[in-house]
């Protein structure tokens, strides 16, 4: 029994009101270390969105047609992570073959993505919330786009912070976290628009 939410609502909700990073804290590690540079942020955001959408869909199929019928639900963590690692590997090879320029831009980020919590997080949310295939697709895409938007916004803000007089102890991760806090507060403002979970 899937929740009765229109996929498009789910897409908007996962971008704005329940942003995977600002509301659910997922994908923080690479977020903080990469966000210093806008070009790499863009590359990583793109890679995360792509991988997130693809693995979300594959994991849904695996869950519904392999794990549930065989009653192997307790193995889902291992299966999900293996699917993610394999997808990243295949994607890396495919991109390398098709477009070397894209590979140059995204290649270094792909291995990082396997250990990005947001990817596994979306698959686990999808399982817990019982989404249908269409809902999962839109939810994964929206989460990826939301993450991408958040990292771009943060890296732009960090450019400004670099020239600001920040107290010595607060420099680096401290001020970054507080900035993310303000961003999260701003995104809470969206929550009146849509009510999902």
């Amino acid at each position: 029994m899937a929740p009765d939410i229109h996929p498009f609502t789910l897409l908007l909700a996962s971008i704005f009101t329940s942003n995977i990073l600002l509301a659910n804290f997922l994908g923080m590690c690479s977020f903080i270390s990469i966000s210093k540079d806008m070009t790499s942020s863009n590359g990583l955001g793109m890679a995360v969105t792509g991988v997130l959408t693809i693995t979300g869909m594959i994991n849904w199929v695996v869950l519904k047609y392999v794990l549930v019928p065989l009653d192997l639900l307790y193995l889902r963590f291992i299966v999900f992570i293996v699917v993610i690692a394999a997808t990243v590997q295949v994607l890396e090879m495919v991109i390398d073959r098709i477009s070397p320029t894209l590979y140059m831009a995204l290649g270094i980020f792909l291995p990082l993505i396997t250990v990005n919590c947001a990817i596994l997080g979306v698959s686990l949310f999808m399982e817990i919330r019982n989404y249908t295939f269409i809902q999962t697709t839109f939810f994964s895409l929206g989460s990826g786009l939301g993450w991408w938007m958040a990292i771009m916004a943060l890296s732009a803000i960090q450019k400004k912070i670099a020239n600001a007089p920040v107290p010595a102890g607060l420099k680096g991760p401290g001020i970054t976290l507080i900035t993310i806090g303000f961003m999260a507060m701003a995104f809470i403002g969206f929550s009146g628009m849509l009510i999902v979970q």
Partner: peptide
């Protein structure tokens, strides 16, 4: 969520 970021920062 924001308070976690503020407190950790």
């Amino acid at each position: 969520a924001p308070s976690a970021f503020f407190l950790l920062g």
